[in-house]
Every structure is written in C-alpha cells, then in structure tokens.
C-alpha cells in the first residue's frame, strides 16, 4: 500500500460555454499523503474548488487521472465513485450545506445511512445513532442535537458539518474554505477542531483557503494559479 492517499496526475478540467472552452485546471499534478494536512492557496477563479471536486470524485477531469490509494478512480462508474466518496472522503464546505429540515443529530445520522439499505440500517441504527451523538459531543454540540441548522450559529453549523463528514470514518477530509463564512474567533475554534480530529484519527486534510496565516498551520502549502500549481 502506497503512502499517497489521493493523487491527481496531469488533471485538466475544461468547461464549454457555447462555442468557448474554458480551461479551469491545466495539467495539475498533486498528491495528498495519509495523515498529511495540505493548504491549497490561490486567488478566486484559480481552480481550487474545481480541484477539490475532482479529487473528491464529485466531478470528472477532462483529461488526466485521479488515483485513490494507488488505484485509478476517475473512470469508475458513477455509483462506485459515490460509494468510495461516502466511505473514504469527507467534505466540509464554506456554507456548511446542512439539510435545513433535519436537526443537527439527524444531519449527522444521515451520513450513516448512505451506504445501507433500509432494513440493514434499522438493524444497526442503535449503534449508528450512538455514534452520531458521540461525534456531536466531540465537536462540542452535545446539548444542541435537537436544533435545526436555522437555530444554530455559523460556527455551530460548521461543527455539525465536520461531525457529519466524520461519521463514515473517512481517510481524508476535503474542506473548501471552511472558515470563510465565520468570524476570526469562531474560525480559529473550527480550525482547531478540524486539525484536532485530523490528528486524532490520522486523517489527511486538504484545506482550500485564501488565508496565508491559516495555510501556515498545515504541513504543506500548494499554490494554484490560473489552473496550474505554481509551487
């Protein structure tokens, strides 16, 4: 087994708008090792989020390949990619992206239902529900489990999102500007939490950010400019 968890080799991503083709990523080579924390820095439109989506198998590259644990995964069938994404990759977004109808507890619990049939989940729901509660305790929201996203602050919502990303015990967390919508104090708390769980569980963390200071907390910084990695 290789030490590289997630890798992009010569990844190009182009979008067509009418007769125009816009290249967002131009032959990107990138690797994320197990347990490593990497900051992906770049200006707006540099292609950071697109690279994150391609690495997270939400989007397919136009050219190049994506490998997970040494195995090429960008050419997998759509449901196989979904299964891999669920089992091994957790996403944290700038705008939290929680389901508004569900409580904090249900939002986290939902993550445990993705790869199970209804009856299989019903058989194991006690253990999975307990795990959801434990994770909410871990992110400091043990008392807010029954609150809906609208009843939580920005920081609390992001904690719920982190707990949800952890429920399937992934190997990597891909965070797209997770503090971009938070004040500095809350942002610091959320980052502490992210780095903390990453260390505790040996998770690889890829952090997309504009913030140089934040990037310095990571093991490595990768800069993206105009669709290319510049250092």
């Amino acid at each position: 087994m290789t030490d590289t968890l997630l890798a992009a080799e010569g990844v190009t991503k182009e979008y067509s708008i009418g007769s125009r083709t816009i290249a967002v990523l131009r032959g990107v080579d990138f690797a994320l090792a197990r347990g490593e924390t990497v900051a992906l820095l770049g200006s707006s439109g540099a292609g950071k989020s697109t690279l994150l989506h391609v690495l997270g198998l939400l989007d397919s590259p136009t050219a190049g390949r994506v490998a997970f644990e040494g195995r090429r995964v960008d050419d997998l069938r759509i449901d196989e990619r979904a299964r891999l994404r669920h089992a091994r990759i957790g996403f944290v977004f700038q705008f939290y992206h929680l389901i508004p109808e569900l409580t904090a507890y249900d939002n986290v619990r939902l993550g445990s239902m993705m790869d199970r049939g209804l009856f299989a989940w019903l058989r194991t729901r006690r253990a999975l529900s307990a795990r959801s509660k434990d994770l909410l305790e871990r992110v400091g929201l043990g008392e807010r489990t029954s609150h809906r996203p609208a009843e939580l602050s920005g920081g609390e919502r992001q904690r719920v999102a982190i707990a949800r990303a952890l429920i399937a015990e992934p190997a990597a967390i891909l965070a797209d500007e997770p503090t971009g919508n938070l004040d500095s104090k809350t942002a610091a708390d959320v980052l502490d939490l992210l780095f903390g769980v990453s260390r505790e569980r040996g998770l690889a963390l890829l952090l997309v950010t504009h913030d140089e200071a934040l990037a310095k907390r990571c093991d490595r910084v990768v800069r993206l400019h105009d669709g290319r990695i510049v250092d």
């Binding site: 759509i78 449901d79 979904a82 891999l84 089992a87 996403f91 949800r164």
Partner: peptide
Amino acid sequence: IKDIGILSSMGASPRG
C-alpha cells in the same frame, strides 16, 4: 436542488 448536491457530496448515488 442544493440538498441533492449535499447528498451527492455525502456519497449518495444517483439512484439513491
């Protein structure tokens, strides 16, 4: 629509 994107990011298949 946004929920559909969220579910996909969590690993939901199109069939799901």
